[in-house]
Design a protein around this nucleic acid. Structure first.
Lengths: 119, 119
DNA sequence: CAGTATCCTTCCTGATACTG
DNA sequence: CAGTATCAGGAAGGATACTG
Protein backbone atom coordinates (compact mmCIF):
# COMPACT_ATOMS: atom_id res chain seq x y z
CA UNK A 1 0.00 0.00 0.00
CA UNK A 2 1.18 3.50 -0.70
CA UNK A 3 0.20 7.09 0.13
CA UNK A 4 0.97 7.84 3.73
CA UNK A 5 1.56 11.43 4.56
CA UNK A 6 -0.55 13.17 7.22
CA UNK A 7 1.77 16.08 7.65
CA UNK A 8 3.71 18.13 8.27
CA UNK A 9 1.57 20.58 6.33
CA UNK A 10 2.15 24.06 5.04
CA UNK A 11 -1.43 25.15 5.48
CA UNK A 12 -5.05 24.03 5.63
CA UNK A 13 -5.36 23.60 1.88
CA UNK A 14 -2.30 21.40 1.93
CA UNK A 15 -3.84 19.23 4.66
CA UNK A 16 -7.19 19.01 2.89
CA UNK A 17 -5.52 18.13 -0.39
CA UNK A 18 -3.64 15.34 1.27
CA UNK A 19 -6.97 13.71 2.00
CA UNK A 20 -8.75 14.46 -1.26
CA UNK A 21 -6.03 13.92 -3.82
CA UNK A 22 -6.25 10.68 -5.66
CA UNK A 23 -7.80 10.30 -9.05
CA UNK A 24 -11.15 8.92 -7.85
CA UNK A 25 -11.63 10.26 -4.35
CA UNK A 26 -13.82 13.22 -5.14
CA UNK A 27 -15.94 10.97 -7.33
CA UNK A 28 -16.35 8.49 -4.51
CA UNK A 29 -17.43 11.33 -2.27
CA UNK A 30 -19.90 12.46 -4.90
CA UNK A 31 -21.36 8.97 -5.30
CA UNK A 32 -21.75 8.43 -1.60
CA UNK A 33 -23.31 11.84 -1.18
CA UNK A 34 -25.77 11.17 -4.00
CA UNK A 35 -26.76 7.65 -3.00
CA UNK A 36 -26.15 7.61 0.75
CA UNK A 37 -24.92 4.05 0.73
CA UNK A 38 -23.08 2.18 -1.96
CA UNK A 39 -21.77 -1.35 -2.41
CA UNK A 40 -18.32 -2.05 -3.82
CA UNK A 41 -19.61 -3.15 -7.20
CA UNK A 42 -22.00 -0.23 -7.42
CA UNK A 43 -19.12 2.18 -6.87
CA UNK A 44 -17.10 0.34 -9.44
CA UNK A 45 -19.85 0.73 -12.02
CA UNK A 46 -20.28 4.37 -11.08
CA UNK A 47 -16.60 5.16 -11.66
CA UNK A 48 -16.00 4.18 -15.27
CA UNK A 49 -12.42 3.11 -15.78
CA UNK A 50 -11.39 2.60 -12.19
CA UNK A 51 -9.49 -0.58 -11.42
CA UNK A 52 -10.45 -2.67 -8.42
CA UNK A 53 -7.01 -2.03 -6.99
CA UNK A 54 -7.39 1.73 -7.05
CA UNK A 55 -10.95 1.62 -5.79
CA UNK A 56 -10.02 -0.48 -2.78
CA UNK A 57 -6.93 1.58 -2.10
CA UNK A 58 -8.79 4.87 -2.16
CA UNK A 59 -11.63 3.51 -0.04
CA UNK A 60 -9.18 2.21 2.54
CA UNK A 61 -7.38 5.53 2.75
CA UNK A 62 -10.63 7.42 3.07
CA UNK A 63 -11.71 5.03 5.79
CA UNK A 64 -8.42 5.60 7.61
CA UNK A 65 -8.95 9.34 7.26
CA UNK A 66 -12.37 9.02 8.86
CA UNK A 67 -14.28 10.14 5.78
CA UNK A 68 -15.96 6.87 4.90
CA UNK A 69 -17.61 4.16 6.93
CA UNK A 70 -17.27 0.53 5.86
CA UNK A 71 -19.95 -1.89 6.97
CA UNK A 72 -19.38 -5.59 6.38
CA UNK A 73 -22.31 -8.01 6.34
CA UNK A 74 -21.15 -11.55 6.91
CA UNK A 75 -23.22 -13.23 4.28
CA UNK A 76 -22.60 -15.46 1.31
CA UNK A 77 -21.95 -13.93 -1.09
CA UNK A 78 -20.31 -11.16 0.90
CA UNK A 79 -21.85 -7.72 1.06
CA UNK A 80 -20.00 -4.55 2.00
CA UNK A 81 -21.62 -1.16 2.15
CA UNK A 82 -19.82 2.16 2.10
CA UNK A 83 -21.26 5.38 3.41
CA UNK A 84 -20.03 8.80 4.47
CA UNK A 85 -19.21 9.72 8.03
CA UNK A 86 -20.09 13.09 9.49
CA UNK A 87 -16.52 14.10 8.87
CA UNK A 88 -16.90 13.11 5.24
CA UNK A 89 -20.08 15.12 4.98
CA UNK A 90 -18.32 18.20 6.31
CA UNK A 91 -15.53 17.75 3.78
CA UNK A 92 -18.06 17.52 1.01
CA UNK A 93 -19.63 20.75 2.18
CA UNK A 94 -16.23 22.43 2.20
CA UNK A 95 -15.65 21.18 -1.34
CA UNK A 96 -18.90 22.55 -2.71
CA UNK A 97 -17.60 26.04 -3.62
CA UNK A 98 -14.59 24.51 -5.32
CA UNK A 99 -16.89 22.22 -7.27
CA UNK A 100 -18.94 25.19 -8.41
CA UNK A 101 -15.77 27.01 -9.44
CA UNK A 102 -14.67 23.96 -11.42
CA UNK A 103 -18.02 23.59 -13.13
CA UNK A 104 -17.80 27.20 -14.20
CA UNK A 105 -14.28 26.56 -15.45
CA UNK A 106 -15.46 23.62 -17.56
CA UNK A 107 -17.99 25.91 -19.18
CA UNK A 108 -15.42 28.67 -19.57
CA UNK A 109 -12.77 26.67 -21.38
CA UNK A 110 -15.31 24.46 -23.13
CA UNK A 111 -13.79 21.27 -21.77
CA UNK A 112 -15.37 17.95 -22.37
CA UNK A 113 -17.35 16.48 -19.54
CA UNK A 114 -17.55 12.77 -18.90
CA UNK A 115 -21.14 11.75 -18.57
CA UNK A 116 -21.76 9.38 -15.72
CA UNK A 117 -24.85 7.27 -16.08
CA UNK A 118 -27.22 6.91 -13.20
CA UNK A 119 -27.72 3.28 -12.32
CA UNK B 1 7.26 20.61 -19.69
CA UNK B 2 4.65 18.30 -18.32
CA UNK B 3 1.12 18.41 -16.94
CA UNK B 4 -1.37 19.11 -19.69
CA UNK B 5 -4.83 17.86 -19.07
CA UNK B 6 -7.77 20.28 -19.27
CA UNK B 7 -10.39 17.61 -19.49
CA UNK B 8 -12.39 15.63 -20.06
CA UNK B 9 -13.56 15.95 -16.49
CA UNK B 10 -15.88 13.91 -14.34
CA UNK B 11 -17.15 16.87 -12.37
CA UNK B 12 -16.38 20.36 -11.13
CA UNK B 13 -14.11 19.17 -8.36
CA UNK B 14 -12.13 17.19 -10.88
CA UNK B 15 -11.71 20.28 -13.06
CA UNK B 16 -10.73 22.48 -10.13
CA UNK B 17 -8.24 19.90 -8.88
CA UNK B 18 -6.63 19.78 -12.29
CA UNK B 19 -5.71 23.42 -11.84
CA UNK B 20 -4.75 23.35 -8.17
CA UNK B 21 -2.89 20.08 -7.89
CA UNK B 22 0.84 20.42 -7.76
CA UNK B 23 2.83 20.45 -4.61
CA UNK B 24 3.27 24.21 -4.37
CA UNK B 25 0.32 25.72 -6.20
CA UNK B 26 -1.90 26.42 -3.24
CA UNK B 27 1.07 27.98 -1.46
CA UNK B 28 1.77 30.21 -4.43
CA UNK B 29 -1.87 31.29 -4.36
CA UNK B 30 -1.57 31.96 -0.67
CA UNK B 31 1.59 34.05 -1.09
CA UNK B 32 0.15 36.12 -3.91
CA UNK B 33 -3.04 36.66 -1.98
CA UNK B 34 -1.12 37.79 1.09
CA UNK B 35 1.38 40.05 -0.65
CA UNK B 36 -0.49 41.11 -3.78
CA UNK B 37 2.62 41.06 -5.91
CA UNK B 38 5.67 38.85 -5.63
CA UNK B 39 8.97 38.54 -7.45
CA UNK B 40 10.42 35.17 -8.44
CA UNK B 41 13.03 35.18 -5.72
CA UNK B 42 10.55 36.31 -3.11
CA UNK B 43 8.30 33.38 -3.95
CA UNK B 44 11.27 31.07 -3.82
CA UNK B 45 12.14 32.25 -0.33
CA UNK B 46 8.52 31.98 0.73
CA UNK B 47 8.26 28.34 -0.36
CA UNK B 48 10.96 26.59 1.64
CA UNK B 49 12.26 23.59 -0.25
CA UNK B 50 10.92 24.37 -3.69
CA UNK B 51 13.31 23.96 -6.58
CA UNK B 52 13.55 26.64 -9.23
CA UNK B 53 12.40 24.13 -11.79
CA UNK B 54 9.18 23.34 -9.95
CA UNK B 55 8.50 26.96 -9.13
CA UNK B 56 8.80 28.05 -12.75
CA UNK B 57 6.80 25.08 -13.95
CA UNK B 58 3.94 25.73 -11.57
CA UNK B 59 3.93 29.44 -12.30
CA UNK B 60 3.81 28.79 -16.05
CA UNK B 61 0.92 26.38 -15.68
CA UNK B 62 -0.98 28.79 -13.48
CA UNK B 63 -0.36 31.53 -15.98
CA UNK B 64 -1.67 29.31 -18.77
CA UNK B 65 -4.72 28.56 -16.65
CA UNK B 66 -5.37 32.25 -16.24
CA UNK B 67 -4.82 32.30 -12.48
CA UNK B 68 -1.63 34.29 -12.38
CA UNK B 69 -0.38 37.32 -14.21
CA UNK B 70 3.28 37.62 -15.12
CA UNK B 71 4.72 41.07 -15.64
CA UNK B 72 8.21 41.38 -17.06
CA UNK B 73 10.22 44.56 -16.59
CA UNK B 74 12.99 44.81 -19.13
CA UNK B 75 15.73 45.95 -16.82
CA UNK B 76 19.17 44.79 -15.89
CA UNK B 77 19.15 42.78 -13.75
CA UNK B 78 15.76 41.46 -14.89
CA UNK B 79 12.68 41.86 -12.74
CA UNK B 80 9.53 39.77 -13.02
CA UNK B 81 6.49 40.26 -10.86
CA UNK B 82 3.73 37.77 -10.33
CA UNK B 83 0.23 38.66 -9.21
CA UNK B 84 -3.20 37.08 -9.17
CA UNK B 85 -5.78 37.62 -11.86
CA UNK B 86 -9.48 38.03 -11.07
CA UNK B 87 -9.88 34.40 -11.97
CA UNK B 88 -7.21 33.46 -9.48
CA UNK B 89 -8.88 35.55 -6.82
CA UNK B 90 -12.16 33.71 -7.38
CA UNK B 91 -10.38 30.38 -7.10
CA UNK B 92 -8.85 31.46 -3.84
CA UNK B 93 -12.27 32.39 -2.52
CA UNK B 94 -13.61 28.98 -3.55
CA UNK B 95 -10.70 27.34 -1.75
CA UNK B 96 -11.28 29.16 1.53
CA UNK B 97 -13.78 26.67 3.04
CA UNK B 98 -11.51 23.79 2.12
CA UNK B 99 -8.63 25.57 3.80
CA UNK B 100 -10.68 26.01 6.94
CA UNK B 101 -11.61 22.32 6.88
CA UNK B 102 -7.94 21.38 6.50
CA UNK B 103 -6.86 23.66 9.33
CA UNK B 104 -9.41 21.98 11.55
CA UNK B 105 -8.10 18.61 10.41
CA UNK B 106 -4.53 19.55 11.35
CA UNK B 107 -5.77 20.38 14.83
CA UNK B 108 -7.86 17.20 14.99
CA UNK B 109 -5.11 14.76 14.10
CA UNK B 110 -2.42 16.80 15.79
CA UNK B 111 -0.31 16.99 12.64
CA UNK B 112 2.80 19.05 12.51
CA UNK B 113 2.59 22.37 10.79
CA UNK B 114 5.41 23.87 8.82
CA UNK B 115 6.01 27.40 9.94
CA UNK B 116 6.55 29.84 7.13
CA UNK B 117 8.42 32.94 8.04
CA UNK B 118 7.18 36.28 6.96
CA UNK B 119 9.83 38.13 5.01
C1' DC C 1 -19.22 -10.35 -4.31
C1' DA C 2 -15.44 -8.14 -2.65
C1' DG C 3 -11.54 -8.20 -2.55
C1' DT C 4 -5.47 -9.74 -2.92
C1' DA C 5 -1.24 -10.12 -5.16
C1' DT C 6 2.12 -8.85 -8.83
C1' DC C 7 4.09 -6.55 -12.29
C1' DC C 8 4.65 -2.61 -15.18
C1' DT C 9 4.41 2.16 -16.92
C1' DT C 10 4.01 6.95 -16.64
C1' DC C 11 4.00 11.12 -14.43
C1' DC C 12 5.58 14.18 -10.90
C1' DT C 13 9.18 15.92 -8.37
C1' DG C 14 13.99 16.90 -7.08
C1' DA C 15 19.14 17.86 -7.68
C1' DT C 16 22.54 19.97 -10.15
C1' DA C 17 24.78 22.75 -13.51
C1' DC C 18 24.58 26.46 -16.65
C1' DT C 19 22.87 31.23 -19.07
C1' DG C 20 20.77 35.90 -21.06
C1' DC D 1 17.76 38.07 -11.21
C1' DA D 2 15.14 34.87 -13.40
C1' DG D 3 15.33 31.61 -15.47
C1' DT D 4 16.79 26.81 -18.91
C1' DA D 5 18.64 22.11 -19.56
C1' DT D 6 19.56 17.48 -18.17
C1' DC D 7 19.51 13.55 -15.41
C1' DA D 8 17.63 10.68 -11.84
C1' DG D 9 14.30 9.01 -8.23
C1' DG D 10 9.97 7.76 -6.34
C1' DA D 11 5.16 7.62 -6.05
C1' DA D 12 0.68 7.22 -8.30
C1' DG D 13 -1.90 4.77 -11.37
C1' DG D 14 -3.11 0.69 -14.39
C1' DA D 15 -3.43 -4.43 -16.26
C1' DT D 16 -4.05 -8.92 -15.19
C1' DA D 17 -4.61 -13.13 -12.58
C1' DC D 18 -6.18 -15.29 -8.55
C1' DT D 19 -9.17 -16.15 -3.91
C1' DG D 20 -12.33 -16.61 0.57
Amino acid sequence: MTAERRGPYFCGIDAAMDVVSGKWKSLILWELDAYGTRRFTELKRGLPGVSEKMLVQHLREMEADGLVHREVYREVPPRVEYSMTEHGVSLNAALAPLGAWGTERIRRIGAEKIVLDAS
